[in-house]
Write a protein that binds this DNA or RNA. Structure first.
Lengths: 251, 251
DNA sequence: TCAAAAGTGTTCTTATTACACCCATGG
DNA sequence: CCATGGGTGTAATAAGAACACTTTTGA
């Protein structure tokens, strides 16, 4: 039988999937581990929770130490606690994700890591611990969130074009969206302020710039806001066809 | 500075919000605590996670010890870890919820509790620890889940009437649904098997009995299934009016 | 004048909502 | 024969999906 005090021999960490968006690509911030275990491997930024620290506070601390950013979108996602997930003992981890504007980001010297770097989410495939599993859970959650709440703005600079916004949604949802329907839907929500400015120096018709209207969002949020986005069926069908084709032996 | 070994002095528990449905009421199973802390108070069933036990396993164990039930719907919801939430030290808890058929339920002698009892969720207001907060988080999650996945069946006996199913949804969503629209929607999903039997011995026209078609559900689940239910606007308006009236001083 | 991305409306289809009466049974 | 809850269809509205051409700019 387990003694009561045997229960008080565990530790817990927070791990943070920090999403950013750059060059049309959804990215996450990873650190190259400078110490055992998994020395030299890429990992999610995370650390032990201090004895007198709340979980959210720990997640914020990890984020701020690494990026210098405060007041970013941060949400608890899921807790991972397989008995064998950490070689040093029983360590469970509470996974968070956060959304940052890469343009705001300044790399801080981080004693825990030799190196911190943005990685395209599509190219991440081998991480320390069970971090791939954590990443997947957080990515799934982000997909859901982005269809439900207008959090996309957290990942863009304060001024953006509708096309940039659409590309962000397409990157997160891993699908194509119809341009006209997307604009109709987004604009009909009345959450964007038209800055009545346009891009400069682009080799094509310059796009209008918009800003997210946070006040109006806070106003709407009370009443529960609908924010669904669906894939275009035609493009979905094309993609499915291409996929089938790919799977078939060439004849 | 915190020593490394200071991190390994925490414990964690699982707490389980066990939902059931009986007499038109959504209920949860609570235990009256037989020991300190919070001796004599009602609490969510939960216990420490053993050193060699996975989190989901611990949640299943707690559930099975208390109810004798296995193979019930169980889902991790959120982790609560405020530094002061447990008087014995740093104890974080991973909250789960489960859905059981009260008809299947058999109370097991539970050494941890003097007493286990079903409580109408609307009447629960004072629980040990931060369990009210946990309950709220799980209830919110259930509301979302029930609009998204056909999990309602987990709470009903194997054979049920459409009216019973509707009452379940109304209890969970805390709203009224239109009878005809509800039936149309539910039947159009083709997830019910009409047993071609009717109730017996009721003092009104006997209702047809249905069964959940789990095979068909598993089949559909792969493709991602829509399962939305909306409140009738008229009834919503009525409710809002009643609420406003209630808030006004009688003149 | 060409390339590149911006911008814009309409039609069709599908899903949601509102709504009221007759039916079968037991007491 | 009455009370109780079971069972049914239709029309109006709203939301979503498909779809192609013109505009503005820099090179």
């Amino acid at each position: 039988m387990t003694e009561f005090n045997d229960f008080f021999k565990s530790a817990f960490t927070v791990d943070n999937v920090i999403f950013g968006f750059d060059e049309g690509d959804l990215k996450i911030l990873l650190i190259k581990r400078g110490e055992a275990p998994y020395k030299g491997k890429w990992a999610l930024p995370g650390y032990f929770v201090y004895p007198n620290e709340d979980l959210d506070t720990a997640a914020k601390r990890v984020l701020e130490e690494l990026t210098g950013l405060r007041n970013v979108y941060l949400e608890q996602v899921q807790t991972f606690g397989a008995t064998n997930r950490h070689p040093f003992g029983r360590v469970i981890t509470i996974a968070y994700f956060s959304l940052v504007k890469i343009s705001d980001y300044n790399l801080q010297p981080a004693s825990i890591a030799q190196k911190a770097q943005w990685h395209s989410i599509s190219k991440v495939n081998d991480l320390a611990f069970d971090h791939i599993e954590i990443l997947n859970a957080c990515f799934q959650r982000l997909k859901w969130l982005v269809r439900t709440r207008p959090v996309g703005f957290e990942l863009l600079p304060p001024q953006f074009t509708l096309t940039a916004l659409q590309h962000l949604y397409e990157a997160i949802l891993e699908t194509d969206l119809d341009k006209r329907n997307f604009r109709k839907k987004i604009l009909s929500m009345n959450l964007l302020i038209d800055l009545e400015q346009t891009q400069e120096g682009v080799a094509h018709r310059p796009a209008r710039l918009y800003q997210f209207d946070r006040d109006k969002y806070d106003q709407f949020r009370a009443e529960g806001l609908n924010f669904e986005l669906k894939e275009s069926k035609k493009k979905e069908a094309k993609r499915a066809a291409a996929h089938r084709k790919m799977l078939q032996p060439s004849s």
